[in-house]
């Protein structure tokens, strides 16, 4: 019985991830738009701020993190919108399978689609912004651990506002304050590494935040979605 349940749980998670990837394949705009935002806004900094490498390397970690954070926030809108409008969300909430894992699978697919490309491109932009080599590793590690937290927190805000027609600004006001610790630790890691200091402490803090977010935020997302369909 237990084995059977866990097996079906695994197939539910896989089916959800498969569906989200298929949807992204059919309408790639939802995936490409945030990525383009990331690419374009970062490219503007050397043009607007001048090509002085000292200046650029000073702001590099902050620029990459802030742009990634905003790109993720913009990408959040596609997470529950279509499901809310076509009624799939109601079916999801009425599924006998644990909502916790269904939502976790959904957010994970979203991370895979919207954050992974950003993380892969980040070292390239670090190079463009003249970030010293020492900063590159903590930048990627920080993004790898930090962006899932942003997705999970963003999903809470999105779940709360999915029923509203123009939720963009409200979403920003709701979730940007929650993003700040991740931003501080993430950029702090890069600054520490560039100053030849250890950054594992900050990475552990981010890891702890990630574990807490994985444990708690699906519950909050579920509760928020129930309020939104009410």
């Amino acid at each position: 019985m237990v084995a059977g349940t866990s097996m079906s749980m695994g197939s539910v998670i896989l089916a959800t991830i498969r569906r989200e990837l298929l949807l992204a394949l059919r309408s790639p705009g939802d995936v490409i738009n945030p990525l383009m935002f990331f690419v374009i806004s970062i490219s503007l900094f050397p043009l607007g701020g001048g090509a002085d490498t000292d200046f650029l390397s000073g702001i590099a970690s902050g620029v990459i993190w802030v742009t990634a954070l905003l790109a993720i926030m913009f990408s959040m809108d596609s997470l529950f919108r279509a499901d809310y409008e076509d009624g799939s969300l109601e079916q999801l909430l009425m599924s006998p399978q644990p909502l916790y894992f269904l939502l976790l699978a959904k957010v994970f697919s979203h991370w895979l689609l919207s954050c992974l490309p950003i993380i892969i491109l980040a070292p390239l932009f670090a190079e463009m912004l003249a970030m010293p080599d020492a900063g590159r590793m903590p930048l990627v590690l920080g993004l790898l651990v930090g962006t899932p937290i942003l997705c999970l927190l963003g999903a809470i805000g999105m779940a709360l506002t999915v029923g509203l027609s123009r939720s963009g600004l409200l979403l920003a006001v709701l979730i940007l304050p929650l993003f700040i610790p991740v931003l501080v630790f993430g950029t702090g890691m890069v600054q520490a590494a560039m100053g030849s200091l250890p950054y594992t402490g900050l990475l552990s803090l981010l890891g702890a935040l990630l574990i807490a977010a994985i444990c708690l935020s699906p519950l909050a997302i579920g509760a928020a979605l129930r309020i939104s369909v009410n």
Binding site: T16, D83, G87
Partner: peptide
């Protein structure tokens, strides 16, 4: 089954139903 069909329009009929079956085990 509510007013909304709970059908994702970009997916095919079969993909919609397959996910329905999988999401309910």
């Amino acid at each position: 089954l509510g007013h909304a069909p709970a059908i994702n329009k970009t997916l095919t009929a079969e993909e919609n139903l397959r996910w329905y079956c999988a999401s309910r085990g």
